[in-house]
Amino acid sequence: MNLFGTFGQLFAIALALVLAPLLTGWVNLCRAWLQNRSAPPLLQPYYMLHKLFLKDVVLAHGASHLFRFAPFVVFGCMALACAIIPTLSTDLPLAPAADTIALVGVFGLARIFISLAAMDIGTAFGSLGGRREMLVGFLAEPALLMVIFTTAMISQSTSVATIVETLAHRDFVIYPSLAFAGIAFTFVSFAENARVPVDNPATHLELTMIHEAMILEYSGRHLALIEWAASLKLYAYSCLGLALFFPWGIAEGASVFGLLLAIPALVAKLAIGGVLLAGIETLNAKVRIFRAPEFLGTAFLFAVLGLLVRLLLESRV
């Protein structure tokens, strides 16, 4: 582990922590613009976090240690995920700690803790949200794994850094399998980040909410951590998508210049991604919860098709 790599790693984590709420704010801003609403300020998520961190925590009477512990676990998982995914550079000392399969496991760990915490208090909404989250999760995870297997087959490695290095450095070749995987990944990330076709992040409507139902009992710094973790999750998924499907601009090896160049590239890609996300969210209506399995089943189908097309069309390549 060299000094530069350590510095790059720390810088990537710090940038993730800072940029993640900004990304959420940007998506909210675009959504408001597209829907003819007056937009909240771009920095609204920061104000929100600031306000929540200053407030006292109110705990329910029945809250166990798990309930107090969970926000820190969730936040830690998301920060770790952001550290593993190459956002700026593929020279990450932490990258060998977990490959993409373990990355899915890290997301899974966060999901289990937040669902358990939601059920811990024993309110109806918490259990309802927890169950729905697990329903969405168990359908989304296999699809995500299939997407990762497709990219892993192309680069012969499950390490994210290696996948990015392979994909970014090769002559330009059209991979139909990557197109399928990209569509599947988009579907999965919409479901995982509680965006519109599956969940609506903007409402607290009893019958439909999933993510919001789970965190109803949280307050103060716990809520702040969970909100921040949600932003980090969106950031992590966006960066994973960018790293797998649009890896250009990510720096490789130890060079300050490459790192400096990677920052504007990342910000630009995230900004465009945010506009697209807001656009898709505006154009689609939220589906009934019972349609969510169909939505995620389609994602799984695309991912499997990508794998099959890879085997058929590109095996001789």
Binding site: V173, I174, P176, S177, F180, L313, V317
Partner: peptide
Amino acid sequence: MSAVSLSTQLINLFASV
């Protein structure tokens, strides 16, 4: 990898679509 011509790639892409 680059041995595959662009037209084959395009045909594969259209077939996938």
